[in-house]
């Protein structure tokens, strides 16, 4: 598909459960525009006809019971699903006027603009400094050593890890605690200055204190980045997200401003889920 123009238009019917309610304080530029996205693992369909618009410089939370396809959907946005041989995708995922799934799309360039933080912290087997400096250096974002030092410091400060790590930059990344490792991974992701950061249950492997730190961090980072996070924790979605999408069995049941969705859910299923009747 070579369509350059955004598909978003006024004539189109809003997709199921998408009132496009806008948060007045946030910027409303579109980050991703997803139309009729279907995905199969072999013969099992994991995502069914997804239609959703994701907004820039906001935190969007994807919630739903396990196995509902929220992580799979997240991985469609930077094509991490390519790594699984049996996966087949159909439909349009548009970013910056380009179809992400197009054959011409350079996956590496896409991932350069759409960073990702994983469920389990996965620092590289390198020093803390190198974990952060490696990608920017490879991307030619920095050329001089001084610039590089500066960038590492900025990324670590933005990720709230500088104070804890500044004295042991040369120690291996794995020497940090779990929560610190996850912040290192966030620092690593923001150091390449992406447009979007995808977070796949970033706090599920962490203790409550580390979780709180990372939630604060997400709140600050949305000034600079679009954050799309998957969470199994509804309280977390309510705390950090501007928008929330509720997934169930591979479909988006409801997508709305977080406050609206948690106070007056439009669908029975959503209400049941957020009130804890299943999940």
């Amino acid at each position: 598909m070579n369509s350059q123009a955004p598909v978003m238009n006024e004539q189109q019917e809003p997709a199921v459960g998408q009132p496009y309610t806008r948060n007045d304080k946030a910027s409303h530029d579109l980050s991703f525009s997803v139309r009729d996205l279907n995905l199969w693992y072999g013969k099992n369909q994991a995502l069914k006809n997804l239609n959703i618009d994701l907004f820039q410089k906001n935190v969007t939370a994807l919630i739903g019971p396990s196995g509902c396809g929220k992580s799979t959907f997240l991985r469609c946005l930077n094509r991490m699903n390519d790594l699984i041989p049996s996966v087949r995708t159909e439909g349009l995922v548009e970013m910056d006027g380009r179809d992400v799934n197009a054959a011409k799309m350079d996956v590496v360039a896409l991932r350069r603009r759409v960073g990702m933080v994983f469920q389990k912290p996965n620092p590289f087997p390198k020093s803390i400094y190198e974990n952060v400096a490696y990608a920017p250096r490879m991307h030619d974002l920095v050329s001089r050593k001084a610039d590089q030092d500066e960038l590492v410091e900025k990324a670590l400060r933005d990720a709230g890890l500088w104070e804890e790590a500044k004295d042991k930059l040369q120690e291996p990344g794995t020497s940090l605690s779990g929560g610190q490792q996850q912040r290192l991974c966030i620092a690593r992701a923001i150091a390449v200055q992406p447009d979007v950061i995808l977070m796949d249950e970033p706090t599920s492997a962490l203790d409550p204190i580390s979780t709180a730190t990372i939630e604060d961090l997400m709140d600050r980072l949305k000034q600079q980045f679009t954050i799309i996070t998957v969470t199994h924790n509804m309280q977390q979605a309510a705390r950090v997200a501007d928008y929330t999408a509720f997934f169930h069995l591979g479909e988006i049941i409801e997508y709305n401003d977080t406050k609206v969705m948690f106070s007056t859910p439009a669908k029975k299923k959503t209400e049941d889920y957020i009130s804890g009747r299943y999940g």
Partner: peptide
């Protein structure tokens, strides 16, 4: 070598 390691690198836009 855990696959998360590779994914971490690929997600940073590494070839």
């Amino acid at each position: 070598v855990p696959d998360t390691m590779r994914q971490g690198s690929l997600a940073l836009g590494m070839t």
